[in-house]
């Protein structure tokens, strides 16, 4: 599809309190356009609670309720059940949460809502960090990325593969997208809207203050995450995975991934791997781990 096919209506209004270069605002704009005005959104504690702007103002032209950190999917379950009882089946219920609210504190409520076959779209905008609280590690933070509570060295553990946890629920539709590919994101949201039952979409959202790169580089960081294989674009439907875009070419080995170093060298959170001198061993470990993941992808999904 062409970008001109995306509707011109805006439900994301001026006056937001987001940081400059915020990836969540880019994603929200596309999500709102793909679903349209017949939508109710539940937002747990995350950057979006700030992005919405201050009470009594709002930057969303979509009915939105904020809920506690771990409760997005449960709150959405309640909204969905109540709409069903009222015969309002044409309204799409969306839970919109960050990676902390999804991978960590909200995973129980999310798993429960998926298992109960709740008819809603759960969207995780993944900036790989607790940004709103001032940059702390989450289950989505990659190994060696630094955060405010670390000394030198960064995180000592690998990140979770949330997508695979989601697949274990055998829901009708799941997808991974990235803010740098708006047409792809738009198509995936649009598709999810038409499917009954639980849908999960995760959006790679590079965060300038969280990752420590310049605010003009958000889209570039997203593109590089896909081109290096740090992030994969795919759809999961009827228990089958289909990689798409550049990720499909990488899976089929039609192109070579860019070295992971090309992505992380722009990010201040990995600076300790380059300064005072390049930590070749750790960089190789990150590259090897990425290769290992793709080796498994090929074994499972080709």
């Amino acid at each position: 599809m062409a970008i001109k096919e995306i509707p011109t209506e805006e439900y994301y209004l001026p006056g937001s309190a987001a940081c400059p270069g915020c990836p969540a605002t880019m994603a929200l704009r596309i999500v709102f356009k793909a679903i349209g005005k017949k939508m109710i959104m539940i937002v747990p504690a995350c950057c979006t609670a700030v992005i919405e702007s201050l009470h009594p103002n709002t930057s969303f032209n979509i009915p939105t309720m904020n809920i506690a950190f771990e409760a997005a999917a449960a709150g959405a379950s309640g909204v969905e059940a109540a709409l069903r009882k009222q015969g309002k089946d044409d309204i799409t219920v969306v839970a919109w949460a960050g990676d902390g609210g999804t991978y960590d504190i909200g995973i129980q409520a999310l798993s429960g809502a998926l298992e109960r076959n709740t008819n809603f779209i759960y969207i995780c905008y993944n900036n790989q960090i607790y940004s709103n609280t001032g940059i702390q590690r989450s289950g989505a933070t990659p190994k060696y990325a630094a955060w405010t509570t670390t000394t030198v060295g960064g995180k000592t553990e690998y990140r979770k593969e949330m997508g695979e946890i989601i697949q274990a629920h055998h829901i009708p539709y799941a997808a991974q997208a990235c803010i740098s590919y708006p047409e792809d994101l738009y198509k995936k949201i649009k598709k999810a809207k038409e499917i009954k039952g639980p849908k999960y979409i995760e959006i790679m959202a590079p965060c300038p203050p969280g990752w420590r790169f310049g605010m003009e580089k958000t889209v570039e960081m997203g593109t590089l995450s896909v081109e290096t294989g740090a992030w994969a674009l795919y759809e999961y439907e009827n228990d089958e995975i289909k990689f798409n875009g550049i990720s499909k070419l990488l899976l089929e080995e039609k192109i070579n991934p860019k070295p992971i170093e090309d992505w992380i060298k722009f990010q201040g959170r990995f600076r300790h791997l380059f300064i005072p001198k390049k930590d070749v061993k750790k960089l190789k470990e990150i590259q090897d781990h990425t290769n290992l993941i793709w080796k498994r992808y090929r074994k499972c999904y080709l």
Binding site: A17, K38, I40, V50, T58, P63, T64, M65
Partner: peptide
């Protein structure tokens, strides 16, 4: 929560 009268509840 009403699609014909969108409000944001519980923001800052």
């Amino acid at each position: 929560l009403d699609i014909n009268n969108p409000i944001t509840f519980g923001n800052i």
